[in-house]
């Protein structure tokens, strides 16, 4: 109950800040922009370069989902670092919500929009057919991934500059969503350990229960290890 009261009040507080409001709604604009691009780009590429981009749609969809959830995670990570610098997180940690409650509360600011946008992206962009149930699984993975990114930034960086460095480095994770395309065995093997690879796998193999299971295990492993590490260092 305390969690939900805090969550409601904090959400109101967050939406009062025009910067956070824009950053949280920015992925919607991004999806709109990609929709426009994918109306005009495929025919141009076929006529000018004889290049059929439609065969790469699963990768593009996965890349967009990874980008949106990564962005939500980064925004939340920066928000938490600002709150740590302003001693707000310390203040909340002595309220009934506690430090863990604060963490869950803030990470859900990343996870919830990531979940919504990851449902909206395949439906709006319409890049090939993805079953509704799979869209739901992808959205769940995406929301866990956004929390992972938020946690990596918050628990890994002890100041704003390091947070920016982490954000820059974490953007490289997106490469793993496309690793199959490079036909490099070693890169594919490394990618198995990273969440973006499994988001692509779920998009590409909608019928495979084992892939969905592995994807969830990898995502949850990352999440739990990071939570454990955070609680231990605290």
């Amino acid at each position: 109950m305390i969690f939900f009261t805090h969550y409601r009040n904090d959400s109101r507080q967050l939406f009062r800040d025009p910067v956070m409001r824009i950053l949280i709604f920015a992925p919607l604009l991004m999806i709109g922009l990609f929709k426009i691009i994918f109306i005009f780009l495929p025919p141009i590429l076929i006529s000018k370069l004889s290049f059929d981009i439609t065969q790469y749609y699963p990768y593009i969809l996965s890349g967009i989902v990874v980008m949106i959830s990564g962005m939500m995670g980064i925004v939340t990570g920066f928000l938490m670092i600002d709150e740590r610098d302003g001693n707000i997180s310390e203040l909340i940690s002595v309220t009934p919500l506690g430090q863990s409650g604060y963490l869950i509360n803030r990470l859900s600011f990343a996870a919830f929009p990531a979940f919504i946008y990851s449902i909206a992206a395949p439906l709006i962009l319409d890049l090939g057919t993805v079953p509704i149930l799979n869209i739901f699984f992808i959205s769940m993975l995406s929301s866990i991934y956004s929390a992972i990114i938020g946690l990596l930034i918050y628990s890994g960086a002890d100041n704003k500059v390091k947070a920016l460095t982490y954000a820059k480095g974490l953007n490289s994770f997106a490469l793993f969503a496309f690793s199959d395309l490079f036909l490099l065995r070693w890169l594919t093997v490394i990618s198995w350990a990273f969440p973006p690879y499994w988001i692509t796998m779920v998009v590409k193999n909608p019928q495979s229960v084992s892939i969905i299971l592995i994807a969830f295990i990898i995502h949850l492993l990352w999440f739990l290890i990071l939570i454990f590490r955070y609680l231990k260092t605290r």
């Binding site: 910067v19 920066f78 704003k160 947070a163």
Partner: peptide
């Protein structure tokens, strides 16, 4: 005042 504001 904060990094998110700067990025925006």
């Amino acid at each position: 005042n904060n990094v998110n504001q700067y990025i925006l």
